[in-house]
Design a protein around this nucleic acid. Structure first.
Length: 576
RNA sequence: GGCGAGGUAGCUCAGCUGGUUAGAGCGCGUGAUUCAUAAUCACGAGGUCGGCGGUUCAAGUCCGCCUCUCGCUACCA
């Protein structure tokens, strides 16, 4: 289904003449008969001479490269020497769409979130370029052209089309979701995907012609886990299937915390302690507790039958008024994608209920004014039902459970205004706990799990690189390594990593440019003793002549550390 | 280095077009209370609104410079 949809989409654009065709040279493996992506080419790094640099980057020295620069390139797949061969690709001419995109985003969608709007503006202002939508790969969706039998669609061309394919799988009525003018298309994504969903995919949709464009792309920032970036490959994640096993029936607790902590305006952190606190202090203590005390009192005083209210006081009128405001706020915030705020609004219903009970004290009044207590519990029950409806977008399972406890059918959103979701005389079910407390030991298990992951990761990182080829003593003593003292240091302007260092080598004082600015501040290293390779050929770096090399130890996390003598040594001392 | 987004109470965040003592939830402290999963309610402590300078009668809110975090991008060993 997806292959078909993506092919058709490509064909439509092709037949409209939207694509630009370009021929370029690319490495080709004659044995495997395929073109090689940069990552599949290795060779000698032209910068540092390492023999295992990739076509896009040398991992030894960190230089970013292009495949043509590599000395003695070889195919990772077959080991053969690849040849440069002509290849033809189809490009989406984003540069031609620039004006229409500018109008559509910068003028017609000023309401988009600042992070999204700003990112788009940045792209549009710096000028767009044609973007290849085909690749020379042997897996993926085939390009539906005779002359491109061996080519496939670029992943970012076909991936968003996957949304359409998925809709087709779901319903034969899929066109109403994608082609109806009254449909609002909204992409919920993370900030790393902004450009594809705001610029590339909309351009594809617009020029295909029959589709609607996204109405909004409310991208979120990133959610971290216990202070570190989430990474599935490093197993730094909370896996849903494991969560469901470890916390059966607690789907909504996770929903609640994720929504309350959603990184709507900046990166945020998920921690298990916070998860526990929000569950226990908000869900259990506020919402769960209000529902529980209301139902318990109803059973205790009326055997589970909803009482008939008598005189409505100003307090009840006030509650009605506040509920109206709460409902409006929830609606407004959801429509503006402010889910965090909307959830807070929804929670304020039972917060209001707890205050109502504390203020009216029905457990005291029951001895003196039974009629009044009926009114209070009637209203409290209404609040429970209202809460079930208004929290449903965020806590669907809880909402269901609460409605079951109240023994009523699911009311509609509009029914809320009537304030009589449960009628007098109706019988409610037994009170159960809406949420359970989460104890420390359960949380500790989760934290322990992550701690173990961290340990395993650091073990893997500390795997040492294999020993190099044997050399002779003569090879070794060609290097002249000396103890030197740093006497001056400053940052090289307009670079992030370079420090210009003046050292006293005992032989002379000289300038060395070193890429250690990320790990050392200039003022902190003055006076330090270091090891310097003094007979390395001079080299120009950013216009400064570097005479030698400061020896650094690279730790498993990639950080660089000086190699110094154990105790003070005279400058110029030989290391051998 | 360039661009984008952020930096407001211990934590997570609101603060619109500049205007009285800067707000909320959680946490913390004190008191009240018992219907309730020691849950609830009230009161309180806590902020030089990242820093410096400027515009203004008045700035968290506008302007400039700087700094820190995240992302994209450049350069670099």
């Amino acid at each position: 289904m997806h292959h078909e949809t993506a092919s058709e989409f490509f064909t439509n654009l092709y037949e409209k003449g939207e694509f630009v065709e370009k021929i370029s040279m690319q490495f080709y493996d004659e044995v495997e008969q395929q073109f090689l992506a940069d990552r599949y080419i290795m060779g000698t790094c032209p910068k540092c001479g390492a023999e295992d640099a990739y076509g896009d980057q040398c991992e030894k020295c960190g230089s970013s490269l292009s495949a043509e620069e590599l000395i003695n390139p070889r195919s990772v797949i077959s080991g053969n020497n690849p040849i440069l061969k002509e290849t033809k690709h189809w490009y989406l001419p984003l540069d031609k769409y620039e004006d229409e995109l500018k109008k559509w985003i910068l003028e017609d969608h000023k309401e988009w979130k600042p992070n999204v709007y700003g990112q788009c503006k940045s792209w549009l202002d710096s000028g767009l370029f044609p973007r290849a939508v085909t690749r020379d790969l042997n897996w993926g969706v085939k390009v539906p052209l005779e002359e491109a039998k061996d080519k496939v669609l670029y992943v970012w061309f076909d991936a968003p089309i996957g949304y359409i394919s998925a809709t087709k799988e779901l319903t034969p009525n899929w066109e109403k979701y994608w082609k109806d003018k009254d449909t609002k298309l909204v992409h919920f994504i993370g900030k790393d995907n902004i450009v594809f969903h705001c610029i590339i995919f909309p351009s594809m949709l617009r020029h295909e012609g029959s589709y609607i464009l996204p109405d909004n792309v409310p991208a979120n920032e990133f959610l971290n886990l216990e202070g570190d970036k989430i990474s599935t490959s490093r197993n730094w994640a909370v896996w849903l299937h494991e969560y469901l096993e470890d916390f059966p029936g607690k789907q909504d607790a996770l929903r609640y915390v994720l929504c309350a902590n959603a990184p709507e305006t900046k990166d945020n952190d998920f921690t298990w302690r916070d998860f526990q606190a929000k569950n226990n202090n908000e869900l259990v203590a506020v919402m769960g507790n209000f529902v529980n005390r209301t139902l318990v009192l109803t059973h205790k005083y009326y055997g589970g039958s909803v009482p008939k209210p008598s005189v409505e006081t100003d307090y009840e009128k006030q509650i009605r008024a506040e509920l109206k405001i709460i409902k409006t706020n929830i609606e407004k915030n959801i429509e503006n994608y402010k889910f965090r705020e909307a959830l807070k609004n929804a929670m304020s219903i039972t917060r209001l209920g707890n205050k109502y009970l504390a203020d009216t004290e029905p457990w005291k009044l029951i001895k003196t004014d039974e009629e009044r207590v009926k009114t209070i519990l009637y209203y409290s029950l209404q609040l429970c039902a209202l809460s079930a409806v208004l929290t449903e977008p965020f806590l669907p399972f809880t909402s269901d459970k609460l409605l079951r406890m109240l023994n009523i059918d699911k009311p509609s959103w509009e029914d809320v205004d009537n304030f009589d979701l449960i009628k007098s005389g109706h019988t409610i079910n037994k009170a159960e706990l809406l949420f359970e407390k989460i104890e420390d030991d359960v949380i500790n298990v989760q934290i322990e799990k992550l701690t173990k992951t961290k340990e395993m990761n650091s073990e893997q990182n500390s795997q040492v690189v294999p020993q190099k080829n044997t050399i002779t003593y003569d090879d070794f003593i060609k290097q002249d390594i000396r103890i030197a003292t740093i006497i001056e240091a400053e940052k090289v302007p307009k670079t992030d990593k370079l420090l210009k260092i003046k050292v006293d080598t005992g032989i002379d004082t000289r300038i060395i440019v070193s890429g250690i600015a990320k790990y050392y501040k200039p003022e902190d290293i003055i006076g330090k003793q270091v090891c310097v390779l003094v007979n390395l050929a001079p080299r120009q770096l950013r216009g400064i002549e570097s005479n030698g090399m400061v020896l650094m130890a690279q730790d498993s996390d990639g950080s660089l550390k000086f190699v110094n003598p154990d105790t003070f040594c005279n400058n110029g001392s030989i290391i051998s």
